[in-house]
Design a protein around this nucleic acid. Structure first.
Length: 462
RNA sequence: GGCCCCGUCGUCUAGCGGUUAGGAUCCAUGGUUUUCAUCCAUGUCACAGGAGUUCAAUUCUCCUCGGGGUCACCA
């Protein structure tokens, strides 16, 4: 069974980049009928917060990503880590190092001055003398000092590192006993049964260290899949400073979960020329081997297009539900269908859609100057007057076509072009140029409101 | 700086020795639409550079250049 995981440290909101790796992990687990588990890496008490964990969960909920089983919190696992540290100590695979921080700093400075790479010199690796006074030791793992470490990676291929280039006896437990990141990740991943690690490729160079831990404990390695970073427009790793990297900000801006997920799945992954993926298709088609090797630049142009696509292809009932959070309640409006059909073609976001609807529903309180100037020349007042008069005599008006017929007859009787009535009427109804078909607008707002708006525009421009 | 990864249109990408280098987005133009949007059509735009290997390289190898990541008692 495939078990994948998402392991954020709760230091803030859920980030776009984190969401993408979470999505990849989720898809791969689901595709294989496996499990997608969540682990909160909250060992750094100073920087972590419960709010951040909640924010991550909230985002998952919005997007419909469900983790399997209980959430694992690293902060509850001290005993487990301590047990494995003790085991390594007992087996002579780790040891106490009494080098003080000052001494370590000095060592590094000397190495830097000599243009050597900075590494621990192994002073206490085989130490059996009397430890110095007043130093709380750290625990270091005995890492191989020579030889090759190969990370078998599903997206990068086999990546090999030379032990002498990158390794030293790194710290697995601090002076206060707290275990370090590369140690606990290996412990947790193994104990949680994770056999497919999907994470950002900024972790690739950490992986050899984690492999050392697996080896020391005699555990099998999981499959690693290091997915390329998402870069900002400057080509640097996308960070929280880049703005709009909070997943929930996309909800506020009016993007749908389907669009955001579709957008993200195509960033760094593809399946031929296909652009549109439902969740079911993503699950069916996703495979880490199709993940790109190179970083991609974060650019939301395509997200707008996808969002518009999903809006256009959503049912009116779905849209009505979604629009409630943008303060537009249409669920019981009798012309809901006509309205929604008209505006879903012209909105890129749900937020825009709500604004469009409100513009139609509200009586114009002012008129766009340019539009008035353009529309009200010649006998525009007479035309729109004639329209108003005709409208007042009509009954049983429901559909856009009913209103369209009235416009047609006015146009025919006065022997004018459609534009002659369209432009002033548009100003009357919407206060500006642009927008949905006038027959649609009138059908939505009804006869009385239409009469009112026509009267208003005449008063304002006579 | 050491180590590691990467390099196809502005952007997301297809390509897996022989293609007029494809799609999408963006942009531009035209059509449809009384307007706007949608939709449709058309167009502009790319293999970082140099050596090899090969009958043949965007595809394989090496070098250069460029970009990124990482080097903690952070995660």
């Amino acid at each position: 069974m495939v078990v994948t995981r998402f392991a954020p440290s709760p230091t803030g909101y859920l980030h776009i980049g984190g969401l993408r790796t979470a999505l990849f992990s989720y898809l791969w687990a689901k595709k294989n009928g496996g499990k997608f588990v969540l682990r909160i890496e909250d060992t750094d008490k100073a920087r972590n917060s419960q709010e951040a964990t909640d924010a991550i969960l909230k985002a998952f909920q919005w997007l419909g990503l469900k983790h399997d089983g209980e959430i694992t919190y690293q902060s509850n696992r001290d005993k487990i880590y301590a047990k494995h540290i003790k085991q390594l100590l007992d087996e002579g695979k780790a040891y106490k190092c009494y080098m003080s921080k000052e001494e370590l700093t000095e060592l590094r400075e000397t190495q830097m001055a000599n243009k050597q790479r900075t590494k621990y010199d192994g002073k206490y690796r085989d130490f059996d003398g009397t430890p110095p006074e007043g130093v709380d030791p750290v625990i270091r793992i005995k890492a191989p000092l020579t030889g090759e470490i190969i990370v078998k990676d599903g997206v990068k291929g086999d990546v090999s590192f030379q032990a002498e280039d990158i390794l030293d006896d790194f710290v697995i437990a601090r002076a206060d006993g707290a275990p370090t990141y590369n140690f606990v990740v290996a412990i947790d991943d193994h104990l949680m049964g994770i056999n497919e690690v999907i994470r950002g490729d900024d972790h690739l160079s950490n992986t050899p260290k984690q492999i050392i831990v697996y080896d020391a404990l005699g555990w099998d390695l999981p499959m690693f899949n290091h997915v390329p970073m998402i870069h900002n427009s400057a080509g640097k790793k996308l960070s929280k400073r880049d703005g709009a990297t909070d997943v929930m900000a996309y909800k506020e801006m009016g993007y749908t979960p389907a669009a955001l997920l579709n957008f993200l799945v195509r960033l760094g992954w593809s399946h031929g020329d296909q652009e549109i993926f439902s969740m079911d298709e993503m699950i069916e088609l996703f495979n880490p081997k199709d993940i790109n090797k190179s970083a991609s630049i974060y650019n939301t142009e395509k997200l707008d297009w996808l969002n518009a696509h999903y809006i256009k292809n959503s049912s009116n009932n779905e849209l009505a539900q979604l629009l409630i959070q943008y303060d537009l309640v249409l669920t019981s409006h009798d012309k809901k269908e006509i309205l929604l059909d008209a505006i879903k073609e012209r909105a890129k976001t749900l937020k825009e859609m709500a604004e469009l609807a409100k513009e139609i529903l509200a009586t114009p309180s002012s008129y766009d100057e340019k539009a008035v100037k353009k529309a009200f020349k010649g006998d525009a007042i007479a035309v729109i007057n004639a329209f108003g008069a005709k409208l007042s005599t009509c009954e049983e008006l429901h559909l856009p076509s009913d209103y369209h017929h009235i416009m047609e007859s006015v146009v025919n009787e006065m022997e004018i072009g459609f534009g002659k009535i369209g432009q002033p009427l548009r100003v009357a109804l919407l206060g500006k140029m642009g927008g949905p078909g006038l027959d649609v607008v009138m059908a939505v707002i009804g006869k009385e409101e239409t009469m009112l708006r026509v009267a208003n525009v005449i008063t304002a421009n006579s």
